[in-house]
Simulated scan of single mutants.
Amino acid sequence: MIKGIHHISAFTKSARENHFFYTSVLGLRFVKNTVNQENTAVRHLFYGDYQGNPGTLLTFFELKNVGSAYPENNYFSTVALKIPKGMLTYWESRLARYSIETTLDQNEPILFFKDPDSFELSLIEVDDVILPENATKHSDVPPANQIIGIFESFLKVERPEETLSFLFDYLGLSLSNQRQRVQLDHQDVFTSVTSSRKTNLSRMGRGSIDHIAYTVHSSKELEEMYQKAVRMEIPIDQYVERGYFKSLYVKEPNGLRIELATETPGFILDEPFDTLGTTLALPAFLENKRAEIEAQLEDF
């Protein structure tokens, strides 16, 4: 039932710096400029491939006064992004041109770096390339070199076995050939769970991940996952219509927020593909508040 990763959402201090980094440096497309639906004074930015496909999406809530993050226990860690085989040198050189420090793994073709908010990222080579229809067009990153999508997310928790059981029993993911790593059947999309080894409470801040979202096909399947959560007595945070997708938020056993989101209707609900991200987009249920919302937001 789970089809893949849908998106990963984090916090940024500056929409302007965030937008420059993800569109100009990483070459992702700005696919949706909208707001946090619970707090419409907060801008919500979405980046992905040209079509804004689930599995490519990194999203950010702009919190102008947010402080530093202190990841201690029970937190989402690094996000790994897929690039085509042989492109690691290109990306190491490109990031260096923008004065971004990188660390190359000595054992595997993985390049580690951070965004302006200290959000931990890595690039990993895979036997794949971005499809022509998904390649972004605004960037000087050639299609053959472009980021393909999300490869892996990392969770650091106090009780890893309980989180792994949640991923197996509730989400239905499968154990990979590496311990404490699960994947979708026949897909190179992974979730790794390790021990945080600390007892101090984490503090969310700039660069912290708020939640990771997995994809289900339809509202019918989302309802089935809701009923399954009820039966399994999994804490339910929200079950809500977002306009671009419908979402179910639950808490895994160590308290991290996991979202399930539908594939459809997607970002062309209110903007055509060719102009995604060029306007302040609001789902239909917020249109009657557009003037108020626009007045709260600063240009970036």
Rank of each mutant, 00 (worst) to 15 (best):
A10N: 08
K13A: 12
A15P: 03
R16Y: 09
H19G: 02
T34D: 06
E38L: 14
A41V: 07
D49W: 03
Y50M: 09
P54M: 11
T56V: 08
F60A: 09
F61W: 02
K64M: 09
Y70E: 15
P71R: 15
N74F: 10
A80P: 00
L81Q: 01
K82N: 06
P84A: 00
S93Y: 04
Q106T: 07
Q106H: 04
N107E: 14
F113I: 11
D117K: 08
F119C: 05
E120Q: 14
V126Q: 10
D128H: 11
V129Y: 11
L131C: 00
T136R: 07
P142I: 03
P142L: 05
P143K: 05
N145W: 00
G149A: 12
G149Q: 10
I150A: 01
S153K: 01
V157G: 01
E158N: 12
E162Q: 03
L164F: 02
S176C: 05
Q178M: 08
Q178I: 09
Q187I: 04
V189L: 12
S196K: 03
S202G: 02
R203S: 11
M204E: 15
M204S: 15
M204V: 14
R206W: 10
R206C: 10
D210S: 11
T215W: 06
E223I: 15
R231I: 00
E233A: 07
I234R: 04
I236G: 05
Q238E: 14
Y239D: 04
G243S: 09
L248M: 02
Y249M: 07
N254I: 07
L256I: 10
R257C: 07
I258W: 01
E259V: 12
T262D: 05
F267C: 04
F267Q: 02
I268R: 08
P272W: 11
F273E: 13
G277N: 02
L286R: 06
A291R: 03
A295H: 09
D299T: 14
